[in-house]
Amino acid sequence: MKPTHHLSDEWLIDYAAGAAPEPVSVLVATHLALCPDCRASYRRLEAIGGALLEVASPVAVGAAARESVLARLDDPVPIPAAMPTPPANFPSQLPRPLRDYVPNGLAALSWQRLGRGAAIAWLRCASTTPYKMLMLRIAAGGSVPRHTHRGNELVLVLQGAYVDHLGRFGPGDVAIADDSIDHRPIADKGEDCFCLAVVDAPIRFTGVFSRLLNPLLRR
């Protein structure tokens, strides 16, 4: 099943150009794994990098450097690190770019409740950018408290589906929100909904009771 909500060009460009911060890279690469359409666009965006490389005015390379490379062609090739085996528990289908960040499976993350129907778990990464990465779990039929954003928020559905005023988001779909959006996602009744989210500023909860949750998200 192909996603219907896609990443917009600027996010794909950030990743193709190599300018995306790590959390954004994780989300974009995971969406690409799930979305053949964006993979096709992405290949063209990488081709822009190739074209720019081609038209960049060359900088002279010393004869010594050239000799050194040619002399090392027969050196033994370093063995690439083995791919870690995917975690045994759900989700078995976690795309490769995400696996390193959830090495022991989703259940092993330290989940923090977010109202009655949802929970979040922060994912660690080395990045020093303002972007943070988290997993969001919305229980079947449950919802995330109503909230607005003070920056960018990208949400990628990995399993299950949710509905908000923008539509229905299923596996592989990406929702891109900014500070203009005040929304309250509700998960389908059939199964829990798991999402990868990337935020560049704290989310702010706007419901009367859920304002109490704000300190939880300030990190």
């Binding site: 993979r39 992405y42 770019p97």
Partner: peptide
């Protein structure tokens, strides 16, 4: 410092 997970 950032890592870049690759599409495999």
């Amino acid at each position: 410092r950032d890592r870049r997970p690759e599409l495999d």
